[in-house]
Computed example of a mutant assay.
Amino acid sequence: MGNGEEHKLEAHKKLLICLVISSSSLGLILLFCLAFWVYRRKKSPNSSIKNSDAENGNSFSLFMRRLSSIKTQRKTSINKDYYVQSFDFKTLEKATGGFKDSNVIGEGGFGCVYKACLDSNAKAAVKKIENVSQEAKREFQNEVELLSRIQHSNIISLLGSGSEINSSYIIYELMEKGSLEEQLHGTSRGSALTWHMRMKIALDTARGLEYLHEHCRPPVIHRDLKSSNILLDSSFNAKISDFGLAVSVGVHGKNNIKLSGTLGYVAPEYLLDGKLTDKSDVYAFGVVLLELLLGRRPVEKLTPAQCRSLVTWAMPQLTDRSKLPNIVDPVIKDTMDLKHLYQVAAMAVLCVQPEPSYRPLITDVLHSLVPLVPVELGGTLRLTR
Rank of each mutant, 00 (worst) to 15 (best):
T319H: 04
V331P: 00
S357P: 05
T312K: 14
R321F: 07
L324Y: 05
Q343R: 09
K333P: 00
T312P: 03
S322L: 14
S322K: 12
V331Q: 03
V352S: 07
L324C: 08
K323L: 07
L350D: 09
Q317H: 10
V331K: 01
D320H: 01
W313S: 04
V344E: 15
K323D: 06
L324P: 02
V331S: 02
L341Y: 09
P356T: 09
P316D: 01
E355T: 15
V331W: 00
E355M: 08
V344R: 11
R321Y: 12
E355W: 06
P330F: 01
K339A: 09
C351I: 06
K333I: 00
T319C: 06
A314Y: 01
V344Y: 12
D337K: 08
I332Q: 00
C351Q: 07
V349M: 15
M347F: 12
M336Q: 13
Q343Y: 08
L338Y: 11
N326V: 05
R321G: 10
L350N: 11
Y342W: 13
T335G: 04
H340T: 10
L338W: 09
H340D: 15
L350S: 15
D329L: 00
P325D: 03
V349D: 12
E355N: 13
P356D: 12
A346R: 10
V328I: 08
K339W: 08
D337E: 14
A348E: 08
A346Q: 12
D337R: 11
I327M: 03
P356H: 10
I332R: 00
T319L: 07
L318F: 01
W313R: 03
D329A: 02
Q353Y: 06
I332N: 00
D320G: 01
V352D: 07
I332H: 01
L324W: 03
P316S: 05
Y358S: 11
M315A: 14
D329T: 04
E355G: 06
I332T: 02
P354L: 15
Y358K: 15
T312G: 14
L350E: 13
R321I: 05
S357A: 14
T335M: 03
D329I: 01
V331G: 02
P325N: 03
H340G: 08
N326R: 07
D329S: 02
K333V: 01
K339L: 12
K323R: 13
Y358W: 06
A345C: 04
L341H: 06
M336T: 08
A345M: 00
L338S: 15
V344I: 14
P354T: 13
N326M: 09
A346G: 12
M347A: 14
P356Q: 13
P330G: 04
M336R: 10
P330V: 05
Y358F: 09
M347K: 08
T335R: 05
S357H: 13
T335I: 00
Q343I: 07
T335D: 06
M315Q: 08
A314E: 00
K323V: 05
M347W: 09
V331L: 03
W313M: 03
S322V: 09
H340M: 13
L324S: 08
L341I: 06
L338A: 14
M315Y: 06
R321C: 07
D334H: 06
K339S: 14
M336L: 10
D329F: 02
